[in-house]
Amino acid sequence: MDGFRYLGGVATLELDREKCTGCQVCLTVCPHAVFAVDNDRRVQIADLDACMECGACANNCAFGAITLTPGVGCAAAIIRGWVTNTEPSCGCSDDVSAPASACCGGAPVATGEPLGSDQPQAPA
């Protein structure tokens, strides 16, 4: 990502090249160009430190070639996880008064506002 580098040597991303079939869906979904195509059409990790562990690649690899511990890189979520002894959660849909960070647009969820037109129905 131009102009931005985060802490290096920490990403949990791993690629099993034996399982890679070269479908390259990981190249499509990665927002930080972590992967590159090798000359045998299979994929290699070209920039591990650019990985933000979003998990899009592993979620879309149909061959189980990619493993990582996905999660939200959000301090509030990680601190909340420590305090409550649970998995990190950004709490965007929990408590209205919780001081969530600007991720998820600033805060929690409200009830839906109708658009003024009826919900679309499947034709009979």
Binding site: L7, H32, V72, G73, A75, I79, S101
Partner: peptide, 24 residues
Amino acid sequence: GVNFTGTTPYTSPSGVEKELRVAL
């Protein structure tokens, strides 16, 4: 600043955890 990691689109949870342990 460290809470801005919830907004930045490039920070990994492993990295955030590492810096929190030192910074807090």
